[in-house]
Design a protein around this nucleic acid. Structure first.
Length: 599
RNA sequence: GGAGCGGUAGCUCAGUUGGUUAGAGCGCUGCCCUGUCACGGCAGAGGUCGCGGGUUCGAGUCCCGUCCGCUCCGCCA
């Protein structure tokens, strides 16, 4: 029987007889004496086999291979440390002791692994295929532990605040708005389908009507969209809803919870409250609704200063109601032509016609390299100097367009420049902030109608409520808020609509007919008639939270069994085919239509 | 659907202007080694250069096509 784990024994246990069990992490065979590092979940302990102490165990130990599972019984001994020789290992928590093996049992042999556990591995296919081996590596093993610590901190925090954890259905109903649903055929109802939930949104609102008052759930959510480093088709949200609360109440609770989660994971305090920016402000200054502020380079508005500029790109844009904005990439005037081209291409992909720039090599404007600076007046140049704090060696990048596209383009350029300059290298600061006052609706050109920016249950700002009721849909703002960390959206929520008539106005605004509303959303409209409390909530992307806490670049590193870019889970080879009889049970015809070959 | 980067030994990678038998480190196999902790030493095995076609006297290298992976855009209420 195991008496201790592999990160437990210290000098205090010297001379005790102990039994450890675990994996062979490394062997160092000297022909006579042989060392192995024994590993379990908790850590490493060195075991030494000596022919003099136990001939049989020592002989057997020569056959050991990495990742064999072995059980070792022996005596805890101090490692020798004298002036001449030091056999302790300061890198190991158990480095002052070792186990002098008396008995060795090989519990289970391991074949040679497809990759080495002590080396970084770039072949992610292989890692995912042998995920159970990949997870043995210290980095991923630590990530799994952190995920547990963080999830537990959230559960503890919310439980203390009186929240109830309630489970909602996984077999759920398709929603007309939002992401593509995963569909599940219903055998008992041929031709009908469940949908996997994109979020427990409607259920949690129904729980508020049910009088639960404070709800949370560690909820698995499903969206059948393309994948990214921070997007998986199934992911986990800390889903929260509360009754009789204001936006400030939710924000305060979440700040407390995130602070607890990150301080437990990172081992240092997270200060609250977080800064708050309005959507307008975030777009204006950072060109993004999830601003990364740690890189500086705030966007500066130059519309007034350049409205009469001889350079037509600027003055013409201003004349047609647009704006001119710029950033100062400090010390980047020696950017290569190739990199300028790359940025220009990026700006064009983002919808701009081009990218105007000034390489301010030295103080005097005659040293500035730029396609247009010669056409600027002295006063215009001085305005730039002051507003952008231009110093020798700076690179200035401009966007001129209507407000929103100009902000978006320059926001992207800003992030790309930061990455070219390596501004965030080794930066592990945590910059939390809230973005508030999101627009309620956005006009969708393709569908020729307004769509909900957040979702159709989001409440407008108090002062915009009457406008929604009257169908004045332009410029409405929502009581919606996103929490952002280091340029990642960690989560978002809103105060909801809780009145049947206001919800109907919302559906009307979205072009959802009364018939459709009464079939798709009947339960909501009806429930709101029976005494629905005012309520609101938020959902946090747990995978992203853990990713950032663990300083990883992909949520795949913090999910036990993630999917690749094609949505496949390579260990079990899901998704797989279905047998004809299974399909028959589901009344699904198996039709394989070959894609016509392109000319 | 689009763009970028990548695919060479089990793993991580190098491979110049197209030129002899495609290399290194780790791992693996065998032998040696009684204080290592990335143990060390000696020897050895291991390759459809993703796949198909083309140019060429000659292709890992150039061209065309294609497959796969990753990152990003679109998409993700």
């Amino acid at each position: 029987m195991r008496t201790h784990h592999c990160n437990e024994l210290r000098t205090g246990q010297i001379d005790e007889t102990v039994t450890l069990i675990g994996w062979v992490n490394a062997t160092r065979d000297h022909g006579g004496v042989i060392f192995i590092d024994l590993r379990d979940r908790e850590g490493l302990t060195q075991v030494v086999f000596r022919p003099d102490d136990s001939a049989e165990a020592a002989k057997l130990s020569h056959t050991l291979r990495e990742e064999d599972v072995v059980q070792v019984t022996g005596l805890v001994a101090a490692r020798l440390k004298t002036a001449e020789s030091d056999t302790t290992n300061a890198d190991l928590a158990t480095g002052e002791i070792e186990i002098v093996a008396k008995q060795l049992v090989i519990v289970n042999k391991a074949e040679v692994l497809p990759f080495q556990l002590d080396k970084e591995l770039s072949n992610e296919d292989l890692r995912l295929k042998y995920r159970y081996l990949d997870l043995r590596r210290p980095r991923l093993a630590a990530n799994l532990k952190q995920r547990h610590v963080i999830t537990k901190a959230a559960r503890d925090h919310l439980s203390e605040l009186g929240f109830l954890e309630v489970e909602t259905p996984i077999l759920s109903k398709a929603t007309p708005e939002g992401a593509r649903d995963f569909l599940v055929p219903s055998r008992l109802n041929p031709g009908k389908f469940y949908a996997l939930p994109q979020a427990p949104q409607q259920y949690k609102q129904m729980l508020m009507v049910a009088g639960v008052e404070k709800y949370f759930q560690v909820a698995r959510c499903f969206r059948d969209e393309d994948l990214r480093a921070d997007r998986q088709p199934e992911f986990t949200q800390i889903d929260i809803e509360a009754s009789f609360v204001t936006q400030d109440d939710i924000i305060g609770m979440i700040e407390g919870m995130l602070s607890s989660m990150f301080s437990k994971a990172r081992g240092k305090d997270v200060s609250v409250p977080f800064d708050r920016l309005t959507y307008q402000d975030a777009m204006n200054r950072f060109g993004s609704d999830k601003p990364e502020r740690r890189i500086g380079m705030e966007m500066v508005d130059l519309t007034e200063d350049l409205k009469d500029c001889e350079f037509r790109v600027f003055s013409g844009t201003v004349a047609s109601g647009g704006v001119v904005k710029a950033i100062n990439a400090k010390g980047f005037s020696d950017i290569s032509t190739g990199q300028i081209d790359k940025l220009t291409k990026l700006a064009q992909e983002a919808g701009a016609k081009g990218l105007a720039y000034i390489q301010a090599r030295d103080t005097d404007r005659s040293t500035w390299r730029s396609p247009f600076v010669k056409r600027m007046s002295d006063s215009e140049v001085e305005a730039l100097r002051t507003k952008l704090s231009i110093e020798p060696g700076d690179l200035i990048l401009f966007a001129a367009d209507q407000w929103e596209p100009a902000c978006e383009v320059l926001g992207r350029i800003r992030l790309e420049v930061s990455s070219l300059q390596g501004l965030l290298k080794d930066n592990d600061d945590l910059d939390f902030l809230w973005v508030t006052e999101f627009p309620l609706l956005a006009f969708d050109e393709e569908e020729n109608r307004y769509v909900a920016v957040h979702h159709p249950f989001t409440r407008p700002l108090k002062e915009d409520e009457e406008k929604l009721r009257n169908g004045e849909l332009d410029g409405l703002r929502a009581q919606a808020y996103d929490v952002v960390l280091n340029g990642y959206e960690l989560g978002g929520g809103s105060i909801r609509i809780h009145e049947s008539d206001l919800q109907s106005s919302m559906f009307t605004a979205l072009g959802i007919s009364e018939e459709e509303a009464s079939t798709e959303f009947a339960h909501i409209l009806e429930a709101f008639k029976f005494g629905a409390p005012p309520h609101g909530g938020i959902a946090l992307g747990l995978d992203r939270v853990v990713m950032l806490a663990c300083k990883e670049n992909s949520i795949r590193e913090v999910i036990a069994f993630p999917k690749n870019n094609k949505g496949a889970e390579l260990m079990t080879s899901s998704p797989g085919g279905a047998t004809d009889s299974a399909l028959r049970d589901l009344r699904i015809k198996s039709t394989y239509v070959e894609k016509p070959k392109a000319e």
